[in-house]
């Protein structure tokens, strides 16, 4: 029926079976005896020995982490359409029944920015125009990170009903949550740039590099969210800890102040915070208008690589157990 399965089914409903390995392989050696024994018990045995058209060797081989990641990605690619529909539906639902609809995702940050700018320029007597842009180049990535984590870490627990009824890769729902927030983030960034132009803050060509920063932050968010989503399945109380943790972390990231305002001896504390490097990247590209040097790209890239590896490793370790814990 489906033409793209020439030899073995490669659809997301098909691939997992050939690679699904037993948790304990010791059993498979005495398999034949068992089935013969079983055959004696059943009334009309239909067990035959000629089961040679399956590639048992490939099935029993232990899968490498790299192979696992490839399989995860191909499974996700197979349901990219479902992914897109979920994200679009999420966005649509968020703004459904409001008169301005999608315009809210643009308006919301604009209004918040206006308020923040007014308040902080009164408080700290800084240049109101550029200060607003300064705050928002930090605040938007931060909101993106926290929203992804807040929504995404719940996603596996909340989609229990789905996961128990249809076969869906486990990373699907965290990915949906993070993708939805990514779309929101892109809208907000666009409106920030619009606002910056209106208040007269000059932007340089470096904003063209922003997509690269977004891609990096997306991968970081996805991996952190995935780890936390899996952890939340095992420890449900984690939700509350994450909430408190994130609100504490907010003050440890130079968003409403700058790193220069922090006393020298405490600065190293801020440099230990991975979130700082991502915000620094956006700030350099949008607010300062400079191309960050190689180390400023390399540090967030390395962090992302590390979290991604951890995320897939965690997923591989828990893949077969997760469904029983939901």
């Amino acid at each position: 029926m489906v033409a793209r399965h020439p030899e073995r089914s490669v659809s997301f409903l098909g691939t997992h079976q050939m690679l699904r390995e037993p948790m304990r392989t010791a059993e498979s050696t005495d398999l034949l005896d068992k089935s013969e024994q079983q055959a004696a018990d059943v009334i009309n045995p239909q067990i035959d020995a000629t089961v040679d058209d399956f590639d048992f060797a490939a099935f029993d081989k232990k899968e490498s982490t790299f192979g696992y990641i490839c399989r995860c990605l191909s499974e996700l690619r197979n349901i990219k359409f479902a992914l897109a529909s979920f994200v679009i539906n999420n966005l649509r639902r968020r703004y459904r029944r409001s008169v301005l609809g999608f315009a809210w995702s643009l308006l919301n940050p604009l209004l918040t920015m206006a308020v923040m700018t007014a308040v902080f320029s009164l408080l700290w007597h800084s240049n109101p125009k550029s200060f607003g842009v300064y705050v928002f180049t930090g605040l938007l990535p931060w909101t993106y990170i926290t929203d992804s984590i807040m929504m995404g870490s719940q996603s596996l627990v909340q989609s229990e009903a789905f996961l128990k009824k249809v076969y869906i890769p486990k990373s699907f729902f965290p990915l949906v949550a993070v993708s939805t927030e990514t779309a929101n983030f892109v809208f907000s960034l666009a409106s920030l740039m619009l606002m910056a132009c209106i208040v007269g803050v000059q932007m340089k060509w470096t904003v063209l590099l922003v997509p690269a920063a977004i891609a990096l932050l997306f991968l970081f968010n996805f991996s952190v969210t995935l780890i936390l989503a899996i952890a939340t399945v095992y420890f449900r109380d984690l939700t509350h800890i994450i909430k408190v943790g994130l609100s504490t972390l907010f003050y440890l990231v130079p968003i409403i102040y700058s790193l220069e305002m922090v006393p020298e001896k405490y600065r190293v504390l801020f440099l230990l915070n991975p979130v700082f490097y991502f915000i620094d990247l956006f700030r350099a590209l949008i607010y300062v208008g400079e191309v960050p040097d190689l180390t400023r790209w390399a540090i967030p890239s390395l962090i992302t690589l590390l979290t991604l590896m951890t995320a897939f490793y965690t997923l591989k370790k828990t893949d077969k157990d997760l469904i029983y814990r939901l």
């Binding site: 089914s9 079976q17 699904r20 037993p22 058209d53 249809v166 076969y167 469904i323």
Partner: peptide, 27 residues
Amino acid sequence: IVGIYPPHQGRVLVQGKITPLIELGTG
């Protein structure tokens, strides 16, 4: 067989594309 519950022991091999009519209307 669909792959929702992986077995704790033994193996399940499927050749061909599965169309599950289980829990219709899920989602």
